[in-house]
Structure formats: structure tokens, C-alpha cells
Amino acid sequence: MHILLVEDDAKLGFMIQYKLGSEGHQVDWAQTAEEAEAFHDTGGYDLYILDWMLPGKSGLDLCKAWREGQDNTAILMLTARDAIQDRVNGLIQGADDYLIKPFAFEELFARIFALDRRKQLSGYHEAYSISGLTLNLRTQEVVRDGESIYLTKRELDLLAYMMRHPGEVLSRERILNYVWGSGAEVTLNAVDATIKLLRRKIDEPFDFKLVQSIHGRGYRLVDMGADGHD
């Protein structure tokens, strides 16, 4: 899962990021609400883990604002507040679950697994269809105009991110942070190289080119219908 962790306690935040990374999750860690909002704007997260008490704007404030913005990504609140009314208030504001500090990491893993399972049972699926191109992340199937296309895991992640934001210009930095993770030791050239490989597979055999370069800004996936193409 791609997880946004918001925790101002440096020791705890480091341990959560490390432990979840060891479990195979990709974790971006913010220590303030402002940093969290910057990460949030990149999109593409499967889960938010929000500490209730943050300097300035609280985790509950973030939860409420993101829900009001129609973001339905699962939210797990971390809190030292164990009063029933506090927990009820968190759920009312849009949290899906809560975990009271201090906690065992085994319980954190179990809560994350339960939230992911709930999402799967609700009928959630990662499937996209734009301009004759379809992507199903569950089956890892990519098809354009009836022709099956094989993509590597990195190419699939990149295509999924672009298909979540059709017509939107995505900077190379934004793509790098999402596809490789904010702590990845790779350069922006990796983005350009992967875009080139993706184009070779989903664009070169076809007349209309879906992946466009926007000089000085980044890349975008063209929605033919939105741009007035037939």
C-alpha cells in the first residue's frame, strides 16, 4: 500500500515508517499538517495514518478537510485520547478507525490489513478506461484498442498514476515522489526514461499519442474525449 503517515513525534514516526516499509508498504512521512497537505496534493494514497495531536492544525482537522474535499481514502487515527466521546468525534469527522497510543506494531499491522480487506469487500477495484486505453490493476492487464500490452511493475505504477489524473500536467518531481517514493535515491532522469519506455508500448504502435510532454512542466495523459477528439 502507498501510505501517508502524519506524526510529529520523530522517534515514533521513524519507527512506524521503518516497520511498515519492512512489511512492503511505501510510506511518506510528514511531521506537520503543512507537510501532510503538500504530500496529500500529490494524490495516489491508499491509506492515511494521522496523529490526532499535531502542532498547529490537528490530525482531526486534516481528516475533516479531506473528507469535505471528497477524498474517500481510508483514514486511521493515532491518538492518546481514550475517552469514548473523543473516539466517537473522530469517527463522525470521517476517520475509518483509530488506534490508541501506546500500541503494539502487530495491532497497527492488523488494523491496516482490516481496512484494506474492508475496501476489497466493498467492491473497490482499481480499473481505469481513457481514450481506448484500459488498465486493471488487480489483474495487471493493459489493453489499448483491443490489443493487450505488457508493462513492468514500474510502468504500471506510472500509468495508473497518470490515469488517475487525466489531462492534468504532472511534474517530474510529483511523478518521482509517487512512483518511486519520496526517499528513493534516483534522479529525475528515471522519470524521463520510464516515460520513454511507457510511450514505446502504449503510444508508438498507435496513431494518436496519449502521453504528452509539456515543456518545462512535466507530462500529461490526454483524454481524447475531453480534448474534443473522436
Score class of each variant (00 low, 15 high):
residue 158 L to R: 03
residue 158 L to A: 01
residue 158 L to C: 08
residue 159 L to G: 06
residue 159 L to A: 01
residue 159 L to K: 00
residue 160 A to F: 08
residue 160 A to M: 11
residue 160 A to C: 04
residue 161 Y to W: 13
residue 161 Y to I: 11
residue 161 Y to R: 03
residue 162 M to V: 10
residue 163 M to G: 01
residue 163 M to R: 08
residue 164 R to D: 03
residue 164 R to L: 12
residue 164 R to V: 11
residue 164 R to N: 04
residue 165 H to S: 11
residue 165 H to D: 05
residue 165 H to I: 09
residue 165 H to T: 14
residue 165 H to E: 09
residue 167 G to H: 03
residue 167 G to L: 01
residue 167 G to A: 08
residue 168 E to W: 07
residue 168 E to P: 07
residue 168 E to L: 13
residue 168 E to T: 15
residue 168 E to M: 13
residue 169 V to G: 01
residue 169 V to M: 03
residue 169 V to T: 12
residue 169 V to W: 04
residue 170 L to I: 14
residue 170 L to P: 03
residue 170 L to T: 03
residue 170 L to E: 00
residue 170 L to Y: 07
residue 171 S to W: 01
residue 171 S to N: 08
residue 171 S to C: 08
residue 171 S to K: 05
residue 172 R to V: 12
residue 172 R to Y: 09
residue 172 R to C: 10
residue 172 R to G: 10
residue 172 R to F: 05
residue 173 E to D: 15
residue 173 E to K: 15
residue 173 E to R: 15
residue 175 I to F: 01
residue 175 I to Q: 00
residue 176 L to I: 04
residue 176 L to M: 14
residue 176 L to K: 14
residue 176 L to F: 12
residue 177 N to W: 10
residue 177 N to R: 14
residue 178 Y to A: 05
residue 178 Y to F: 15
residue 179 V to N: 02
residue 179 V to H: 04
residue 179 V to C: 04
residue 180 W to D: 04
residue 180 W to K: 07
residue 180 W to N: 06
residue 180 W to F: 15
residue 181 G to F: 06
residue 181 G to K: 06
residue 181 G to S: 07
residue 182 S to Q: 11
residue 182 S to N: 11
residue 183 G to F: 12
residue 183 G to I: 11
residue 184 A to Q: 07
residue 185 E to I: 09
residue 186 V to L: 12
residue 186 V to T: 04
residue 187 T to D: 12
